[in-house]
Design a protein around this nucleic acid. Structure first.
Lengths: 216, 216, 216, 216
DNA sequence: CATGAATGAGAGTTCATTCAT
DNA sequence: AATGAATGAACTCTCATTCAT
């Protein structure tokens, strides 16, 4: 490795990595304390930089928050959309994959704190709410709506009210995320996400089954 | 300016009514801004008293918060428990009544802001979280679990994992409450709670139906 | 006793006693917490009256403080002056009586807290300082100066600088009073005032003795 | 108004000098108003910094107070202890030097306000009292006790009750310090510390003289 | 005369943001 | 580019004082 290559000095690589390091640190600190209670001192310490450095990359606390949300959520949404676009098999399997993906990629990662943060701060930061609503919720809902439409078109699902059903699909996942942030420490055992997911999928299978027979 | 008009006293004694007035005001302000961002100045103004008066009735902001939660939630839980205790008919009807009650009494009232507040602040106020978990969540979950057990015992419901199913029942209600606090202002129309509730009850009916025939 | 005599109703006697009760209570509370840290709530509670009642008798906290000082100190000074006026015997015995009086009447009573209060607040309440200086210190110093002059005139004491010697006489007494307020709780044993007084009197006897022989 | 003049920076970094500057300012303000009545605004203004800067160096008002006491008193105690350790001549000369040192180094400096502050606040800040008692009073008393023991061992002083005599030695010095804080402004002339010190030393010489002849 | 609910100015403390270094 | 000392507005909480009852 060209460690001494003056064309690629070490601090150069550092500098390019900085925003990402800060955003990661902010996700941790915001997740633990909430946006309002989190101190930029702590974010800086977590990122291993000084407080002033934060302001070289983000104009203020709120913009840093937005960046956190963007980086933690959008890649997962992109992946989900690619997954649907390439789907071949039965629609319920697609649904199953999407929910499993959420349960493993989001819930178990630090990004699981995002829903709590959004819920807590949407009222105080309308344009953060707007951004999240447009860039995350709408896209996620559209994704699930597309799966439902596909299933109905293929006769795999009985006809349902798409909008309500999307919310029914999302709600237990969202609730699991909020639970972790709020009450996990209080319950003896960690929440049994697998059991909940299984029960949810079972309920959905029964709910979506065409009147005559089982969905494929 | 009638500044010295003796017919307009600067204040009035309202010892009995004050705590309730303050708690109601606090629910409004906390609901709008969240606990951390709410200023006691605003709560006082909303209640029509001075800042100092708050401290005659509540020792600090956190205790005021707890009082808000207590007053907004516990009466509804009491009512729900009485309702179950006196239930005679089919278990699904009980479930239907409970969820409808929640949708009308909590969601449409100011108390709908409580879940958001709890979610946002549980991490920062462990004993508030503890209180809410013990006094609200456990009781509500036990209530729903009792309905499920009753239905299974009477052969109205198929055997299900009670714990997971309780969460599936609660999740869409909780999500509706959070939705109102976070995104209602952004969507053109108010959320169609009735449609969601209908879809949810429909899904539950299918999910809980015994294998052989329809639930009563 | 004419308990039912309408000319001397019971509450009448109560009313006349009130100011004294309040002042006594204030001495206790001021002594424990200092003037600034003492709350009028506590004074009222100690006196067994409501906070508003304090203002019927004293226009504000500072005037109450002055009344406390007046009531606690002036009677003792009056007694000391009467004692000197009627003194017949040797001057050193007069001195001894005065100091013993201070050690027993002031130091062991609640009034022992007054010096600390004056020292602490003189800077913030110039007219309290003025009052205390004129009404207490000057009179006390004059008293002791008179004893010294008497002793010198009668040949019992050697000639000394009166002003400095008065201060030397007073200092250990004053220090004892301050000690009680500040450090008594920290030392295992209560301060041995008797030993200090004995040592002080012994020192004074040697200090004041005429060159040739011992003072009478 | 040169509000935007870039040649006049709004502030300057003085990391090393700041704590001392703040402590010095606090000594002045605390000395004038007492601890409780002193406002941190005033301390900050006196130090030429903003209020927030105080909290960069001291976690709260009480710790600032302790720092003030430490910086103002301990160096003088250190000096006094070194002085005794190196003493060669007669014990009374040592005593004389120590008292003269106190009269010149403490009484005439701003540190003269410390005793008043301690006396006023010991009751409200038990751990400040403890610190002062352990670190200042005990050391000072031990110092004087050592001088007395030395003098008695060398036959320069008659046998005395060491503890009481130490207090007799200290009292006039302490009283002088309190006097300055409380009544200096009221008396026309500044207190004649030199005269008091002379009288005190004279009294001590007579008090400590062995029965047979004069000390040293 | 007495009460105590209500007031409101003011204090200590926190922390996002700025900017001299 | 990076730092972190310094700022100052904003907050919670206290308590002497007032005044409707």
């Amino acid at each position: 490795m060209p460690e001494d290559d003056p064309a690629v000095p070490r601090w150069r690589r550092r500098k390019e990595a900085r925003p990402r390091e800060i955003v990661d640190a902010a996700l941790i600190v915001f997740g633990e304390r909430g946006f309002a209670a989190a101190r930029l001192d702590d974010v800086a310490a977590q990122a291993g930089v000084s407080k002033g450095t934060l302001y070289l990359y983000f104009p203020n606390k709120e913009e840093l928050f937005k960046a956190v949300v963007r980086e933690a959520i959008l890649p997962n949404l992109d992946m989900a959309e690619r997954l649907l676009a390439g789907a071949q098999g039965p629609s319920f399997a697609v649904l199953e994959t999407l929910l499993t993906l959420f349960a493993t990629r989001i819930l178990k990662s630090r990004a699981g704190a995002i829903p709590k943060l959004i819920v807590a701060e949407a009222g105080n930061f309308p344009d953060l709410a707007r951004f999240y609503y447009d860039e995350v919720i709408r896209r996620a809902f559209a994704l699930l709506a597309a799966v439902l439409e596909r299933g109905m078109a293929r006769g795999e699902f009985r006809p349902v009210d798409v909008d309500s059903t999307v919310r029914l699909i999302v709600a237990p996942m969202l609730m699991s995320a909020l639970w972790r942030s709020s009450f996990e420490a209080l319950e003896g055992r960690p929440p049994d996400v697998a059991a909940l997911l299984a029960a949810h999928l079972d309920a959905l299978r029964r709910t979506l089954a065409p009147e005559g027979g089982p969905p494929s």
